[in-house]
């Protein structure tokens, strides 16, 4: 374990006042300084809830049941909104899927970046503004002095996402959580935004937690991957290892279900699907939650949730892991 900057241990989140209805069922992982960790999974797997928990932004309808989140070794007071305000942006920045939702339509975008800086640092106005312009330049926005005075609706989706990234990085955080940052964007813009994030990471050493459902994005931008399914961590591994030697049948299924022109001919024009659907969070099944959809499932899988197994940095929670490598 090189240098974990963020550590999440046994995080359990349930629907408020319903400890039996778990959204996160005891998730543990860490993020190393300067790396990109991708959290992958389908809707309802808990990946977004994990990021909201780290930011102390859990919706009112849910509550933390157990677990700790440590940032640089100290526990984050995620239920204390006032204390978390100091953490947000200053130490952990966040980028959302919908940039429009993160910005106030009534203020020029430069002002909104300025606000973030002034919230966390006492700076003369002129210096703070100079920093805004500098930030907008760094995220490759054209004519930052003029653009700073534009209102959000005047900018394109890609430009807005750049502004949000500038806001997230305004106070030099150590971790940036990017929750589906490019899902609402066209592929060409997606590539630009991802390249921007990677370059900022190289220049500032910020660790990125990339939450996404896009495995292609993961393959080319992440150092490590954590796969989640129905509130559990299914598998975690260095990116290359995960793609070539997935051990959890869900990871394997996900990889095989993803359209890939390079493999299409082998599949005869049809995609390989994972049958069935994700179980309801209220379903109290005792075993592995993937078992009903799993080709390898046995009675053991339905009865008992598997303990995580580690082979070096590659961990998975499965009684009957996949053994053949993907070609």
């Amino acid at each position: 374990m090189s240098n974990p900057i963020l550590q999440v241990e046994n995080l359990q989140i349930c629907v408020r006042k319903k400890p039996g209805v778990l959204i996160l069922r005891g998730v543990s992982f860490h993020v190393n300084a300067g790396e990109t960790l991708a959290i992958v999974g389908e809707s309802g797997c808990g990946k977004s809830m994990t990021s909201l928990a780290i930011m102390g932004l859990l919706p009112d309808a849910v509550e933390k049941l157990s677990g700790t989140i440590r940032f640089k070794g100290r526990e984050l007071p995620i239920t204390d909104n006032r204390a978390m305000r100091k953490v947000r942006a200053a130490e952990i920045g966040m980028v959302f899927q919908e940039p429009m939702a993160a910005l106030d339509p009534l203020y020029p975008v430069g002002k909104q970046v300025l606000e973030v800086i002034e919230e966390h640092e006492k700076l003369p106005r002129a210096m703070a503004w100079a920093r805004v312009i500098d930030l907008l330049t760094k995220v490759d926005l054209p004519n930052p002095e003029t653009l700073a005075w534009s209102y959000p609706h005047k900018l394109s989706g890609g430009q807005l996402q750049r502004v949000v990234i500038a806001m997230a990085l305004a106070c030099n955080p150590d971790v940036l959580i990017a929750d589906e940052p490019t899902t609402a964007l066209d592929v060409t813009v997606q590539a630009q935004i991802m390249r921007l994030l990677k370059r900022l990471q190289r220049d500032t050493g910020v660790a990125i937690v990339l939450i996404t459902h896009n495995l292609g994005l993961v393959a080319h931008t992440a150092d490590r991957v954590m796969v989640m399914y129905a509130g559990n961590k299914a598998e975690e591994a260095p990116t290359r290892d995960l793609f070539l030697n997935p051990r959890h049948p869900y990871t394997r299924g996900l990889l095989d279900a993803t359209p890939n022109p390079e493999r299409a001919s082998a599949q005869g024009g049809v995609l390989r699907e994972i049958p069935g659907t994700v179980p309801s969070i209220a379903d109290p099944m005792p075993g592995c939650r993937f078992a009903p959809r799993c080709p390898n499932a046995s009675d053991l899988c339905h009865a008992r949730f598997p303990d995580p197994t580690y082979e070096g940095a590659h961990g998975y929670a499965c009684h009957h892991p996949v053994t053949d490598a993907r070609v």
């Binding site: 060409t188 070539l244 993803t258």
Partner: peptide
Amino acid sequence: AIPVPDVTRPTPPAF
């Protein structure tokens, strides 16, 4: 600009 979900392929130039 399309990231193919395949680690054996080179990362597309756009990334």
